[in-house]
Design a protein around this nucleic acid. Sequence first.
DNA 1: TTAACAATCTAACGATTATTGGAATATAAT
DNA 2: ATTATATTCCAATAATCGTTAGATTGTTAA
Lengths: 217, 217
Amino acid sequence: MRELKTLLYEQVSRIGKAMASPKRLELIELLCQSEKTVEMLSQQADISVKLASAHLKELRLARLVDTRKEGKYVFYRLAEQGVADLWVNLRGLAEERLVDLQMGLSSMVTHGHDLRGVDRKSILKQARSGEVVVIDVRPGDEFAAGHLPYARSLPLTELKKRLAELPKNKPVVAYCRGPFCMMAKDAVALLQKRGYQAFKLDDGVAEWRARGLPIEQ
Amino acid sequence: MRELKTLLYEQVSRIGKAMASPKRLELIELLCQSEKTVEMLSQQADISVKLASAHLKELRLARLVDTRKEGKYVFYRLAEQGVADLWVNLRGLAEERLVDLQMGLSSMVTHGHDLRGVDRKSILKQARSGEVVVIDVRPGDEFAAGHLPYARSLPLTELKKRLAELPKNKPVVAYCRGPFCMMAKDAVALLQKRGYQAFKLDDGVAEWRARGLPIEQ
DNA sequence: TTAACAATCTAACGATTATTGGAATATAAT
DNA sequence: ATTATATTCCAATAATCGTTAGATTGTTAA
């Protein structure tokens, strides 16, 4: 009776443990974008390959991620959609804490012209009608793995040379991996300096999907 | 830049850490039912008062719970609804793992006549019309803090002496604290032995509310 | 075959965490 | 005041975790 209960809560806590490390959370967020190799993950999360491998092992043990081998590369991916939803849920709960802890977060939250309050469905509608241009500033492979409807891929790294593709008479909405990612922020800063009407959308695909909105491939 | 990111993920991981202990999860589940004192929590979770206090301190540090002092008692409660939702979310993810690990869970999942597949809204409708009787077998104070609509309080401890209150010609649906709680299971077993048409509803109030359904007080 | 590369495994360390027992606070009851 | 009760604080221990370095496995390219 008691033993059974202990067993049950232990199982759930294994998932909690897996989400109890900052590095692992960052890896999960990256995997919300697309499947990636250990090397890609280690680079994008700014950690050693060894450490990434160790953390990924933990995540696999907790069944939050799965792997696929292709040649000498091992691709990791989320085991199911629910993992991304849990990440969004967890981060949402933490965000309140972040603001009232007066964290450096303020430098991210106060991005001047953001779309925090704007209704997501109205953005979707305006994007469809062409009233606004939605750009996805993540690397191209992440865009290919899934992106917001009507979004155009324009990776941050190519933004400078491809500015001409964007209209100056329409609002441009940029998004990236989610609220903790700085790519959209940087893109908006650049665009605004060049005279574009640029806005940042805090959502990434995980947030978008967790709220039941559609994702395209 | 990197430091800021590190800081952000660290904050989220604090919540993960708080949910990384089986005991703390059990405490959270108990607090989903109603506010409780340290002593009540320690008894219901089968741990020492000291240990309960230490775990509750962790939860308070992570801002998942709040306290209220009344005389010599300290009442703990969830800091916000989102905490209960996160618990439901987390447990949901773990449940798949539990079944394919062939855990002792099977002894709980196979409760014979359960309502796992039955639509929640139809239960609600049938309860309103009186086609079924919904009983809440948790302790009375938890019922008072919030319960399913049209439910009647009939704590497991009093069930035997109050059997006469239940009809034999209608289905009786029992629920308790959630899928990990055994009270409804025991109630159903007793009722079925006495010839009632009894069924177990796996939801507790947290699960019910997390799915957007109404709760009464 | 050999060389280069991706990824994992092993061992080790310091840091953190869970748990317990004993002392200390605070409040209520006598 | 004194006693009893609820809770927390402090210290100590064993267990677990994060991280790094070195060796190892498996795969591709030469």
